[in-house]
């Protein structure tokens, strides 16, 4: 059942680590995703752009089954799981799939009743059954890496939004997932805190972590993304390298949207 791990080395380098096939979902009469398919290779940084309501967040949440699509298959590292709408028949497979991913949320969603260290350790000890000492060591290192070595024993409510988001990146990263999903990671932040989070994300992108990022940060997309996808009303309208999509968009809708975003970016820089 695709349960067995592919033997290292025999796998072709071009085999996608994540493969989304034919994802359909509608809320009531409104079709949110119209049969989306996408392959992501190991180490790729895919940035998804698009106006609000285009379905990008829903798409991301379907990948780890936080949202149940009516149709479609998600395959990560050779492990396929089918979407079956509200029926949750394949609970065990969903759980197994989720262990291959991690997510960074718009509102951080750090566990409020736990310190930063405990937040990062949680997945290691509870899900991956790593020993406490080992988990503590790895979590401390990870928090140091995102620049929070001095806040190990702070509770989330005592630190800034940017620090919380960096901690939540550490919580995702420490699990060593096949892919990390970023759901508008900077949208809830004060403007002056956006930079530190993007900096952290750039750092891990360079290390070859596979990332899918929903964001409006056009400059981040240009400098970090290996591929940019533009979505509109539940479809992938355009896709390609940052240069292709951001600097030379072919689609009318993409052009329109990018003009607005670019203007904003220019204004922000001034």
């Amino acid at each position: 059942m695709g349960n067995e791990k592919p033997v290292q080395g025999t796998k072709e380098r071009n085999t996608p680590i994540l493969s989304v096939k034919n994802l359909f979902i509608s809320f009531g009469d409104l079709a949110v995703l119209n049969g989306i398919s996408m392959d992501v290779k190991k180490g790729e940084v895919v940035v998804i752009l698009g106006p609000s309501g285009s379905g990008k967040t829903t798409f991301l949440r379907c990948i780890n089954f936080l949202e149940n699509a009516s149709e479609g298959t998600i395959e990560i590292d050779g492990y396929p799981v089918e979407h079956q709408g509200k029926k949750k028949a394949n609970k065990k497979r969903i759980l197994a799939l989720r262990k291959k991913t991690a997510m960074v949320f718009q509102n951080y969603n750090l566990f409020r009743n736990k310190t930063l260290l405990a937040n990062v350790m949680e997945g290691l000890t509870v899900v991956q059954k790593v020993s406490k000492a080992e988990a503590e060591k790895r979590s401390t290192e990870m928090l140091e890496r995102v620049g929070l070595g001095e806040k190990l024993h702070n509770y989330p409510s005592t630190i800034s939004g940017g620090q919380q988001q960096r901690a939540s990146i550490a919580r995702a990263l420490v699990l060593n997932p096949n892919v990390i999903l970023f759901d508008e990671p900077t949208s809830a932040l004060d403007p002056e805190l956006v930079g530190e989070v993007l900096e952290t994300m750039k750092k891990i992108a360079v290390e070859g972590i596979t990332m899918i990022v929903v964001t409006h940060e056009i400059n981040f997309a240009r400098s970090v993304a290996t591929r940019v996808i533009f979505m509109d009303s539940g479809n992938i309208v355009e896709e390609g390298t940052p240069q292709e999509v951001i600097d030379n968009p072919k689609n009318e809708r993409t052009k329109q949207f990018l003009n607005i975003i670019k203007e904003k970016a220019v204004l922000a820089e001034k």
């Binding site: 089954f65 759980l95 989720r98 509102n107 999903l181």
Partner: peptide, 19 residues
């Protein structure tokens, strides 16, 4: 979002609830 965060790192509903 708290329970969603639990799910996102692979916890079960029961684990997320109790922890």
């Amino acid at each position: 979002g708290q329970l969603e965060a639990c799910y996102s790192i692979g916890m079960t509903t029961a684990q997320g609830m109790t922890r």
